[in-house]
Simulated assay, not measured.
Amino acid sequence: MRIFRNSTAEYLLLISTAYGQLPYHALTFLSLPYENVKDAFQKLCRAGYLETVKAPGHKSFFITDAGYAAYYEAMRKSTRPQYWDEIPDRPEFTRNIQKAVRLSRINEAQMFFFFLGLAPYRTSLEVKREMEQKAARSSDNLKYSRFAGVTWRGQQASLVYHFGNGNQRLNTNGERNAAALFSDYRHPCGKFILTETEKGLADILEYSLWVLNKSSRELRHMQLNYHITYEDNAILLPLTRDAGDFIRAFRHPHWPQTIQRLAEDARPNEGIFLSMLDGTWMDVLVYLSEAHMTDMPVTFAVWDIQLPILRELTRRGLLPDGWQAVSYQAGDFCRGIPPF
């Protein structure tokens, strides 16, 4: 198969080399017609340049030796000799299903933050390798952590988790140690929870609401999936191109002041008002846990990417009908348009 310059096939080989093994879902990040991407992907697979790993609920792909050779040759033809040394090596891959799920999610989270969000990012694999080089046992605290990587806004570090299509169980001590590790030399450490769809985020919120309504005595001997708490009020995001706009806005130096002003502009004269513009949902969970006690109208201040989550919560009967929402587009903020 011939790889033409600036073709969709060349672009797919470039992405596969730059980010390594990826879930098929990551193809939705590309600003290309999906039919063209799908057609080029299938041709590369038939040519043996890309290979897929499939299992129930999982499909990932990686570049093969033949694909990397074709990519390398295409780069040599399109760049000057002094840049040939900058062509990245072939990335690691695995056919093992459990490892493929983990590796592909780590790489997709990096692609989401670095490619879509234009944010500084280090994968958990890079962090662990760096720690192992500094001291023989320095990575023990991260051994049981399932975080996918780390991003920064100024001096504040945020651990990033990729849950795929739904919720998952985390090792409490491992995650606590991972957060403590970064908070030791940064400002307070936050969290991003990513899922492929808004439905996955609704699953987390529904489970968190169930936990919130239980007493500590009832939960004492239970092994729990991830749930939002007052202490760990993580930012929830779907893995979409529009959510990349949220990351770019989040990194803006005037982010805190801007979301506060937008929330005030959206606040109604009466009724209950809740803002999720900072990406967190704990206030909404508290409202849902007490919704049966009040008939007051409720208004949400949200980004467009959060509206499907509210609709899904309503469909499940967790959120009463009749709510109102003032929605904003993070993309307008990113493009420097005066916010609303």
Score class of each variant (00 low, 15 high):
residue 3 I to A: 10
residue 3 I to W: 10
residue 5 R to A: 14
residue 8 T to P: 14
residue 10 E to T: 08
residue 14 L to I: 05
residue 15 I to S: 11
residue 16 S to W: 13
residue 23 P to L: 14
residue 23 P to K: 10
residue 24 Y to L: 14
residue 30 L to V: 11
residue 31 S to C: 08
residue 32 L to K: 12
residue 33 P to N: 07
residue 36 N to Y: 10
residue 39 D to R: 14
residue 40 A to E: 04
residue 43 K to Y: 03
residue 44 L to K: 12
residue 45 C to P: 03
residue 46 R to D: 12
residue 59 K to V: 05
residue 61 F to T: 01
residue 62 F to P: 01
residue 64 T to S: 14
residue 67 G to N: 08
residue 74 A to E: 08
residue 75 M to S: 11
residue 76 R to M: 13
residue 79 T to C: 10
residue 82 Q to C: 03
residue 89 D to C: 10
residue 96 N to M: 11
residue 96 N to D: 15
residue 97 I to T: 09
residue 102 R to T: 01
residue 103 L to G: 00
residue 104 S to F: 15
residue 107 N to F: 13
residue 108 E to L: 13
residue 111 M to F: 12
residue 116 L to D: 06
residue 123 T to E: 05
residue 129 R to M: 05
residue 129 R to L: 07
residue 130 E to I: 03
residue 131 M to W: 04
residue 131 M to G: 03
residue 131 M to V: 04
residue 132 E to D: 08
residue 137 R to T: 01
residue 137 R to I: 02
residue 140 D to Q: 01
residue 141 N to Y: 02
residue 141 N to C: 03
residue 141 N to H: 03
residue 143 K to T: 00
residue 147 F to D: 01
residue 151 T to N: 11
residue 156 Q to V: 09
residue 160 V to N: 12
residue 163 F to K: 00
residue 167 N to F: 07
residue 168 Q to V: 12
residue 168 Q to K: 11
residue 170 L to K: 07
residue 171 N to A: 04
residue 171 N to M: 04
residue 171 N to C: 05
residue 174 G to H: 00
residue 181 L to W: 00
residue 181 L to H: 06
residue 181 L to A: 02
residue 182 F to E: 07
residue 188 P to T: 09
residue 189 C to P: 05
residue 194 L to Y: 13
residue 195 T to V: 13
residue 203 D to M: 09
residue 208 S to C: 06
residue 209 L to M: 06
residue 212 L to H: 13
residue 212 L to T: 06
residue 213 N to A: 03
residue 214 K to Q: 15
residue 218 E to A: 02
residue 219 L to F: 03
residue 223 Q to P: 00
residue 229 T to P: 11
residue 230 Y to K: 14
residue 230 Y to W: 09
residue 231 E to M: 10
residue 231 E to N: 09
residue 232 D to R: 11
residue 234 A to L: 09
residue 238 P to F: 06
residue 239 L to V: 15
residue 242 D to I: 09
residue 243 A to N: 12
residue 243 A to P: 03
residue 245 D to Q: 10
residue 248 R to Y: 13
residue 252 H to T: 00
residue 252 H to M: 05
residue 254 H to R: 02
residue 254 H to D: 14
residue 262 L to Q: 04
residue 263 A to H: 11
residue 267 R to P: 05
residue 268 P to Y: 15
residue 271 G to T: 05
residue 272 I to D: 07
residue 275 S to G: 06
residue 291 A to M: 15
residue 296 M to Q: 13
residue 300 F to T: 05
residue 302 V to C: 12
residue 304 D to T: 15
residue 307 L to P: 00
residue 308 P to K: 14
residue 309 I to Q: 06
residue 313 L to F: 08
residue 318 L to D: 03
residue 321 D to P: 10
residue 324 Q to W: 11
residue 325 A to I: 12
residue 328 Y to G: 01
residue 328 Y to V: 09
residue 331 G to C: 08
residue 332 D to A: 10
residue 332 D to N: 13
residue 334 C to S: 13
